[in-house]
Every structure is written in structure tokens, then in C-alpha cells.
Simulated assay, not measured.
Amino acid sequence: MKPAALCTLLASSLLLGACASRPEPAKTAATPPASAPAAPFLERSLRLDNVLLGPQPGAEDFAAVRARGITRVINLRTPEETATLGFDPAAAAASAGLDYRVLPVPSSGGFSPAVLDAFSAEMAKGGELLLHCGTGARAGQLYAAWLVRERGLSPQEAMQRVAPLGLWPLPMERLLGRPLAIDFAAPAGGDAPQP
């Protein structure tokens, strides 16, 4: 018998032996797998300076946010998204003593310089604030853009700051297993780019 055939026969015998010696699992009533409880809102959020970036808070989370010193909330979700929550976030925020603003950014194509201008105006007011959307991705992108324009960080530095939200490394970097260098391209006229 050839060595390759002998190896195949030996491996097959071992697998059959393992299957035959395995006891049959006890029959029990089907129970659904226990789902892990979602991490509390504050654990799923990222605190950078005076801003808490995060996903949609639940009605009960606004009090916890207020207890952490946050005084204002900026919701980036659209009215259509907010209508599906099953509670009124503006009322929940108000009952926790939080000022509540909506700056709607649709999840696809909603980013514009006007959105950044409005957020910059809110940031100029000072104080501690919660910036949230559905998952924290839009909030992280907006905050990163603000860091570039208002604080002078490079795009890469800004994205690294919001990395804990899952925004960095970029999916392409993860797929290829190597980092990208991100910076602004020169505009068509050859003038230096303005963040």
C-alpha cells in the first residue's frame, strides 16, 4: 500500500473511531441560547475631552449621562429614525435635566460643510455634551472632522482619536492587513487644501 493511501486510511479509521466512541448527547427540551446583555450605554460610548460620543441612548440612559456631568445632547438621527425608538428622547433628556438638540444627518449622504458649521457652533458654547447617532459612527465622523477643522489635527490623527468607536482602522486596512496614510488631496487649481 502506498504511503499516501495508508495515511488516508489511518486518518479515516481515527475519525470513525472518535465518532463511534463519542456518547450521544442527552435529549433535552430545546432552549433558546442565552443572549449576552448589551453593555451599558456609557461602556459603549467614547469620552474625548468634553464630548461623549456614542450610539442611541435608551430612555433610562439619559440620567446616567447627566450623572457623568453631561449637560447637553446633540442627536444626529433623522426624525424618521427617532420615530422608531418607542420613546421620546427629547422628553427623556429633559426629564434628566439635559438640553436636547437635533442636528439630523441621514446615514447616507447627509454630511456637508453646513452640518460641520452647525456642530462647530454648538461646540463653541462649551460645556459637556453627548453627541450620538444610531451606532456612534456618524457622531465619530463628525467629531473627527471637527478635530481637523477646529483643532488642526491631520485626518489620520483625528480618525485615530475616534478609533475605539470602530471607525479606525478602516475596513480596507483590515482587509489588506496594512495601514493607509490619509491626507487631503490638492484641489484642481493647485491651491493648498483648506480643512
Rank of each mutant, 00 (worst) to 15 (best):
G152E: 12
A90W: 11
T28I: 04
A30H: 11
L180Y: 13
D117A: 12
E157M: 10
G126Q: 04
G140E: 01
P33Y: 02
E60S: 08
P171L: 07
P40H: 14
V65W: 12
L131Q: 10
C19F: 14
L98C: 02
L6D: 00
S35A: 02
L167N: 00
S13F: 12
E81W: 12
R149V: 03
S107V: 09
S107C: 06
A144T: 08
L103N: 06
D117M: 14
L42M: 11
P3L: 02
A18H: 05
P55M: 02
E150H: 12
S21F: 10
Q56R: 08
A11L: 04
P89S: 10
V65C: 04
F62C: 04
M123P: 15
R22F: 05
L167Q: 00
L53W: 04
S12R: 03
G189F: 05
D191W: 08
T28M: 01
M123Y: 10
A93P: 07
L167I: 05
T78S: 11
A186H: 09
E43L: 15
L16H: 11
G190M: 05
E128T: 11
C133F: 03
P33R: 10
L10K: 01
A64D: 09
R151H: 14
A64F: 06
G54K: 05
A36L: 09
H132K: 00
A11E: 01
A18G: 13
V162L: 07
S12I: 14
